[in-house]
Design a protein around this nucleic acid. Structure first.
Lengths: 159, 159
DNA sequence: TGATATATGTTATGGTATATCATAACAAGT
DNA sequence: ACTTGTTATGATATACCATAACATATATCA
């Protein structure tokens, strides 16, 4: 599967499709995609840059939502916990999931110049990581790959 | 290569060997392994659990070092920047590197029960991650794998 | 309806990290 | 000796990230 995020595409339909997909999954799984939760998802979808909780909070505030930190964190925890968004630990920031319909190990390609983020999929089960874990008797429940580097748009433009 | 950290071993010699190795590398590479830096490395080596900067700071303080946050962060940045330690983003914490003599993509196996951490080595270049990056034209400069799960010592003991 | 669970509002606080400015220590050039 | 460059420390303040705790409201279902 291809990472998205470093190619131009139609954000409008991209956002609409993702929201529809998440709504459908919530309905199927008995999850409540409340107003705030959906709005936070949309805010994340509107960028391919990772957003900090306080950035999101600022947007919510401008729209008249209550804007104490827990409001953002609760919505983010809902989205992350159900696979609709991811937290990028390296940046203490969040992104909407690009592949929300399937279980996967996300691999983030983080451009250190423009700070855009693309999400790919890692296949750790065929990596030395899986062998290490097996040898050690360690059971992997969740995993993430975070790679920092330079995206094609910034390569050459800036060192 | 095997992860270490979930097997018992002789910490005393483990620490001594690591410190000697790092001292040697610093000498070769013209890096100054100052008193604080070495002490922080030793503090990290003394555990296989990740330590927060403020945990380290508390130890330093007890030993009479100056104990403002930048003291710990500067030493940690030196160690991380030169490959002698790693930061585990998921925990906002630091561990001494288990393979300080070679460039590698570290893969952390983090036990969510006992919070011990083992370090293995990932081979992303043969993972789908490398293909994704290549397709996207993204140049990976640094990467890390963080896996959360249950270690062999905790499996069965606690759900 | 009433009982239970889930979601939100709000205040306060805890934990992590860095910016900034000042100083020390030492090496190297003039 | 004097200046300059460089690297490491000391110290203060503040920015930034995240959650605890408790009250209130809304949904869901027996």
């Amino acid at each position: 599967m291809q990472p998205i995020g470093f190619k131009s595409h139609d954000h409008g339909t991209c956002i609409a499709h993702s929201v529809t997909s998440v709504q459908k999954q919530c309905a199927e799984r008995g999850l409540q995609l409340t107003h705030v939760r959906q709005r936070v998802l949309e805010i994340l979808l509107a960028k391919h840059q990772a957003m900090g909780a306080y950035d999101i909070l600022a947007v919510l505030k401008a729209e008249g939502f209550s804007a104490q930190p827990p409001v953002a964190y609760r919505a983010l925890n809902f989205l992350v916990g159900n696979g609709f968004a991811h937290k990028i630990e390296r940046l203490n920031a969040f992104v909407a999931c690009s592949h929300p319909s399937s279980e996967h190990v996300p691999a983030f390609l983080i451009c250190r110049v423009c700070e855009n983020v693309a999400e790919g999929i890692a296949n750790l089960s065929e990596d030395t990581v899986a062998a290490s874990a097996r040898d050690a008797g360690f059971i992997i429940e969740r995993a993430v790959v975070e790679a920092e580097g330079v995206c094609p748009n910034c390569d050459g433009a800036q060192p």
